[in-house]
Amino acid sequence: MLRFLVRRVLLVLPVLFGLLVLTFVLVRVVPNDPSASLAGQNATPQQIAEIRAKYGFDRPLIVQFGVYLKQVVQGDFGTSIQSGRPVARDIRQRLPATLELTFAALGLGIGLGVPLGVLAAVRHNRMLDHVLRFFTVGGIAIASFWFAIMLQLLFAMQLDLLPLRGRLSAIMDAPKHLTGLYLVDSLLTLRFDIFWDSLRHLILPAVTLSFGSLATITRFTRSGVLDTLQKEYVLYETAVGYPRWLMLWVYVLRNSVVATVTQVGLLFGALLAGAVVVEAVYDWPGIGSYAVFAIFTSDYKAILAVTLFVGVVYAIVNILVDVLHGVIDPRVAEQM
């Protein structure tokens, strides 16, 4: 297991290095001079040259890359051109918001998707199965920005049940910083008013973000359970008279979720990408809205850092998924 872990991590390193090269080349080779946009529209060529020298844009690309690489290894992503603060600090500050949103969405997706998938498999080819299939194919066809706006329109603007945007009401102060997750921090500090307020703010973004993954999880659980139900031990257990709920929800389910777990790793990438859109619509102060803002303002250090950061997170999650795979299915662990 340990050997497997080390090997997985070592395999990821060249990919991350490649990612660094790719993003760097993209940003520096594409003819979109960041110094010119920084200097403003009325800048003289001399002012542009000064800015170019200040940020090191005038040095050879390979030197710039070397400097960048050294900084990244030290955890220094440079200073954001727009906010004027270290990008690493911006990301650290905004990360908990994205984590809270993503985990809430993933929790919703798994919590609803797995039972729905089992139900669809049990009611195979009956009405419920068809309805669920329609909904799972439909779930991945909805544009998340549009779904977000429709939910806002209905629940925030028309019915006035939930807040329109943001993470907390303007009159509320953020809870004392412990984990950065408002739900957890407010509970730990016993501020139930903040907990309730942040929960209300979380509902619409989390539902929007979870919709696509919910569909995928339902689908993979369904096909996994259908496959397992054909196995001989299920027939045996039925014959021996095991309670049906115990068989289905414990024995069959455990043997069926392997494919779903693999999907969760891939879904995490989809969730991170989805978070960009969802955060932009709901003004959620996380990495996603930061990325959109960076892209709008040609803040290339921030763009590089976010891309790289997402790559690292994605890689870590996929390694974790492989480990989890081994826990659920010991046969996989033996091959590791």
């Binding site: 490649g18 891309t307 790559g311």
Partner: peptide, 21 residues
């Protein structure tokens, strides 16, 4: 390995950055 590098980041994020550039 080049393919892996492109798949290491969700397509949307890479496409957004590229479209902006």
């Amino acid at each position: 390995r080049i393919t892996d590098v492109f798949l290491a980041v969700p397509q949307l994020i890479l496409a957004l950055a590229l479209a902006q550039l």
